Simulated scan of single mutants.
Amino acid sequence: MTTAPARPATLWEAGTRPAGGALRLATALLVTAAVADLVLSDGLGLFYDLVFATICVVLALTVRPSDFFPVGVFPPLAMLVVVLLLAISEPQAVADARDGVVQATVSGLSSHAVALALGYAACLALLLVRRQFLAAHPR
């Protein structure tokens, strides 16, 4: 009796990283991107948005299937934390300098809503595709 050779893992199966380490790394990268964006420009801008969306996609592809939930809730919380930290420390980076913390947070979230929506949608879509693929093709 001959067994079929094991096929290589597809993109949908390749994620094996535990969520804890992946989320800590993603958080550090997002904070670094925010700081770099502030150094290079007057406020949080397109560079941060692109890094945010990229990190959302990479997270969805690299974590193991048992850790889909933490990755699925990470993007909006990460955006909120970064914008809130900036609203507290440098409100002019995300809003008008005279705005309070709450107003600066809301303004910052609204000005980066497209990046949040696209990054979050891509993350959730990739997690869904991975879940469906793994259910249809168990190893």
Rank of each mutant, 00 (worst) to 15 (best):
A135R: 15
T10E: 03
L30Q: 05
P91C: 02
D99G: 00
A26M: 09
A135W: 09
A26I: 07
R17M: 14
H137C: 01
P65L: 04
G21Y: 03
P70T: 07
V31F: 15
V73W: 09
L29Y: 00
F47K: 01
V51P: 06
L116V: 08
L59V: 05
P5W: 02
A36C: 09
P138F: 03
C56P: 07
Q103H: 10
A115E: 03
L40P: 01
T105M: 06
V81R: 09
R7K: 13
D37Q: 13
D49Y: 00
P65D: 12
P65W: 04
L23H: 08
I55M: 07
F47G: 12
L124S: 10
E90L: 13
Q92K: 12
T16Y: 04
G119C: 06
S41H: 14
V129E: 02
T16H: 12
V83D: 05
A117M: 10
L29S: 10
L127Y: 02
H112R: 13
C123L: 12
L124T: 08
F74M: 06
G20Y: 02
A34Q: 06
L109D: 08
F68V: 05
L29I: 12
V83I: 15
R131G: 15
C123S: 12
V35I: 15
P75G: 05
A53G: 11
T10S: 15
A26Y: 04
I88M: 11
A97Y: 03
L134G: 05
V82E: 09
G45E: 02
A97C: 00
R17Q: 11
P8G: 07
V73D: 00
L109T: 05
A117P: 00
T2R: 13
P18S: 10
P91W: 00
M1D: 09
T2F: 09
C123H: 08
L80W: 14
L38T: 00
C56L: 04
T62L: 12
A9C: 02
A26V: 04
T32S: 13
G45Y: 08
R17C: 06
L127P: 06
S89M: 10
M1V: 14
V39H: 09
F68S: 10
A87E: 04
A33I: 05
